[in-house]
Design a protein around this nucleic acid. Structure first.
Lengths: 161, 161
DNA sequence: TTGGCTAAGTCTGTCAAGCAGACTTATCCT
DNA sequence: AGGATAAGTCTGCTTGACAGACTTAGCCAA
């Protein structure tokens, strides 16, 4: 193949964590759905109206996210209406916050809009802006270039090509 | 619509930062490509072999990421070969590190594999594991539930439905 | 100077997914 | 009984994914 072979070439992507996470999140509309839930929009018609997602696709994505444990259906009833269901984040869903905040942060930096950020993550207690930072277990906060993604204990060797 | 209307319903998603970021990242294969570059795999055939992405799709994604400023083509030459190009992350691309690390972190927590994590972000200087944390400007490190995504100064009102 | 080697693509036909818009369902109230 | 509403399902069209074959451009050896 090539003389300078990256170490990663020795390993399989079969059980890669990013792959497995993307099996769940890995499509444009799924992120739209998650955004709606994170900003507090929980109902089918509200999500659809705001995000423009096609009905069939919304149905599919909600079902998939429930099956994967990211959302749950929660009953509600408006006065004079029958009982219906809305969608809420589970703890697993809430723990996607860093992913969403990291995406917002990147977008604010590299795709700025006139007028400033349209959405902002804030700490409920103190009202300050929330961001994500990289931190190692020794307490350093490395720049991206100082971080390497290496094979871990669960890495599998790739089949001979 | 409903009695209890989430505030977010008043605002448009048209210029939403997450939408705009997903315009660039928003598909399964794009994340596969980014992962390869983050682990140091930079060449067309290497990326394709490891990730299984169809050629045509890989061509398309690489071109899109270059156009969006996330990657650049970089010439290289193996002995006895003609000059070719490999793909490298720009600064904008590197700054996606928190997004990738956040995804790995979530996957490790909620989709664990036997044998432990197959990939690990580590600090090059000290070798320790790197994670992402949420932090507000006052220095607190809030739990996900203590963070709210609110309308910012650039938020647009939605057209009357 | 021709012919083989290689990485990095392009091309072609098939098939699954996305999509818009119309229709259906299940209750509640009058 | 009839109308209202949220949350879907159904139908047919179109776009994109995909596998596999083919092409390109330079380098080298004979």
């Amino acid at each position: 193949m090539s003389t300078r072979v990256p170490e990663a070439m020795a390993f399989s992507t079969q059980n890669c964590t990013i792959s497995r996470t993307m099996e769940i999140l890995g499509d444009k509309w799924t992120f739209h759905v998650l955004r709606e839930l994170f900003v507090g929009v929980r109902r089918f018609e509200d999500i659809r109206t705001r995000s423009g997602i096609p009905r069939q696709v919304l149905t599919d994505r909600l079902a998939a996210l429930i099956e994967r444990g990211v959302l749950r259906r929660h009953p509600y009833r408006e006065p004079g209406q029958r009982e219906r269901y809305e969608y809420r984040l589970t703890q697993a869903g809430l723990d996607l916050y860093p992913v969403l905040v990291a995406m917002i942060q990147w977008g604010d930096q590299y795709l700025p809009t006139e007028g400033g950020p349209p959405i902002e993550p804030r700490h409920r207690d103190c009202g300050e802006h929330v961001s994500v930072v990289l931190r190692c277990e020794a307490g350093h906060e490395p720049e991206p270039r100082q971080v390497a993604i290496l094979a871990g204990p669960g890495a599998l060797l790739r089949e001979a090509s």
